[in-house]
Every structure is written in structure tokens, then in C-alpha cells.
């Protein structure tokens, strides 16, 4: 009966074993199609077959979003410190070093100001490839400064989240970044300036439970996983199967947790229109 087995298992699982030629071609994580890499890049790292949004770097995100030549980076030299002398299977110091080498960044965030279709905004964008976009003191500080600069310059703030949550290697200090960033946003709100939170795949834990869910407007990319507790932890705790699409952007929209889902190619346009409508001076 062996010849049945293949069919039963081939609902997408089987295709994982397909060897992908290195470099020129990529395999879509969602539909499994093998696609020409250049074609995906031209399509803003979105699968042309199934519209799956690949995770992208902070730099590419900013390139897609900001009017050419207008981005001015801030706080690029703020660096993490191993304040707790933390060591799990690896030393935190070594994790920092290797992540910095691989990403060319000091930590999991790029922030600065730029024009979005002519609208000035402060931006803070997560780099997921840097230790899973985890939030430590540097990420918290850069977001807080971006918010404070928004207040000083009287302009809106946009945060693009993509993070596994708090950075455990900074323990309680990372937890406190939740309080720090939320406190800064309270001041932005008081100043009457807009804050738009864009949640992309994945946004979890302490990041979701602070600034990511505090947006005047919250936008998600299609299919982004967004939640507090991870799906595996929930499934293990309640010992039940999770509902179809649980914690995905579409599920959150249905449950009233976000304002809208916006595709990558429409993000810039949507953000600039929203910023204008919230900040334009009335006669």
C-alpha cells in the first residue's frame, strides 16, 4: 500500500524536499512555488503566485517606503551592552557580535526621519534577522527617541514591528522597555500627533503588548502572525487545536484588533494618505 502514502502526504508537506538551486531561485514559504529571485525582488519581496509577503530587512522596508534621498538615519551608533553578563548555550556578547557582523547593524532596529509622498514622519523599523527582532534596551531607546523626535518636530511616528518579543538576554531590562516606549507614546498622544503602528510577520510578546498595539491606527501586512503568547505555547497550555488562521492578520481584523490589512505595494500610499488626513491643518 506504499503507493497511497505519497498522495496522502502531498498536501504541501511533500514539496519541502524539493532541492532549491542556490542563488537564482527562491521557494515561496507559503505556496511552495519555485520562483525566479529577481521576479520576487521586483515584486517587493512578495510571491507573484500567491501574494505571500516575505520577511524583509529594515533597509529594504525603508527603501520601499521613503521618498528617494530623503531618509536621514538617527541613533545608528546606539549599541547593546551585556549588562547582566548573560550566558545561555552561548554568551550574549557573542550573539551580539555575530548578529552585528551578519546584519551590519548595531541592533535590531533602524530609525530615522523621511518623507512619505512628501509627508514628514519619524520611522522606526525592526530588523527581524537580528536576534529575531527581539527588543532589548537599544530597540526600546531608539523607539522612544523616535517618538520624542516626533513630538519635538511636530510630526507623526510610524513603527514597523517584526519581532519575537522581549530579548531574554536582557531579562527585566527588556520588560521595562515596554513601559518606557508606552510612556513616550502617551506623550505623543497628548501632543496631538499621530502614531501609526504597522505589524508585520511576526509580531509577538512584549512588542505586541506595548507600542505595537497602541497605534492610533494599526495596520497589518497580509497573513502576518501577531499575538502575545506564541501559538505553540497556547496549544501546549490548553491542549486543543487552535482555530484556522489563529493570530493571523485576517483573524485579528475579524476580531476587531486592527484597522486594516494593507499589501506591501500599497503601504506607502496608504500611510501618506492617513498621515495627511490626521495632520493637515484645517482652514
Amino acid at each position: 500500500m506504499i503507493w497511497f502514502k505519497k498522495d496522502i502526504l502531498s498536501n504541501g508537506e511533500e514539496s519541502k524536499s524539493v532541492k532549491v538551486p542556490f542563488g537564482l531561485w527562491v521557494k515561496c514559504d507559503h505556496c511552495g512555488e519555485i520562483i525566479y529571485k529577481k521576479e520576487v525582488e521586483r515584486n517587493l519581496d512578495v510571491c507573484p503566485k500567491c501574494n505571500y509577503h516575505f520577511r524583509i530587512s529594515a533597509r529594504s522596508r525603508i527603501n520601499i517606503l521613503v521618498d528617494e534621498g530623503t531618509f536621514k538615519e538617527f541613533d545608528a551608533n546606539v549599541e547593546p551592552v551585556d549588562a547582566l553578563d548573560f550566558k545561555d548555550l552561548k554568551k550574549y556578547k557573542d550573539r551580539i557580535k555575530s548578529s552585528q557582523k551578519e546584519s551590519g547593524l548595531k541592533d535590531a532596529m533602524v530609525s530615522g526621519e523621511g518623507l512619505i509622498n512628501g509627508q514628514k514622519a519619524m520611522l522606526a523599523v525592526f530588523e527581524f534577522s537580528f536576534m529575531g527582532g527581539s527588543m532589548g534596551s537599544v530597540v526600546g531607546e531608539k523607539i522612544t527617541r523616535a517618538v520624542e523626535r516626533g513630538i519635538d518636530n511636530k510630526c507623526g511616528v510610524i513603527v514597523f514591528s517584526s519581532s519575537g518579543g522581549a530579548r531574554m538576554q536582557e531579562s527585566i531590562l527588556s520588560l521595562m522597555q515596554m513601559a518606557k516606549t508606552s510612556a513616550a507614546l502617551a506623550r505623543l498622544r497628548e501632543a496631538g500627533l499621530p502614531y501609526i503602528s504597522v505589524v508585520t510577520d511576526p509580531t509577538m510578546g512584549g512588542v505586541t503588548a506595548s507600542f505595537a498595539m497602541l497605534g492610533d491606527i494599526i495596520i497589518a501586512e497580509p497573513r502576518a502572525l501577531v499575538g502575545f503568547a506564541g501559538p505553540r505555547v497556547i496549544a501546549e497550555t490548553i491542549r486543543q487545536k487552535l482555530p484556522e488562521g489563529f493570530q493571523r492578520a485576517e483573524y485579528l481584523l475579524e476580531h476587531g484588533m486592527i484597522d486594516m490589512i494593507v499589501e506591501r505595494k500599497l503601504m506607502k500610499d496608504t500611510l501618506s494618505r492617513l498621515l495627511a488626513m490626521l495632520t493637515e491643518k484645517q482652514n
Partner: peptide
């Protein structure tokens, strides 16, 4: 800690925690 359950997520425990942080701060 917060309860890792389906209902807790559906009813927005992230938003609830975040809002408390913001309101308490001021």
C-alpha cells in the same frame, strides 16, 4: 504571567496590557 489562551488573544490581551502601561505612565 498573562494567560496563554485562545479567548485571551481574541479579546486582545496585548492591547489590554499595552493600554495599562500607557495610562499608568501618566
Amino acid at each position: 504571567g498573562a494567560y496563554p489562551g485562545i479567548g485571551a488573544e481574541e479579546r486582545g490581551q496585548s492591547e489590554a496590557i499595552a493600554t495599562n502601561l500607557m495610562v499608568m505612565s501618566s
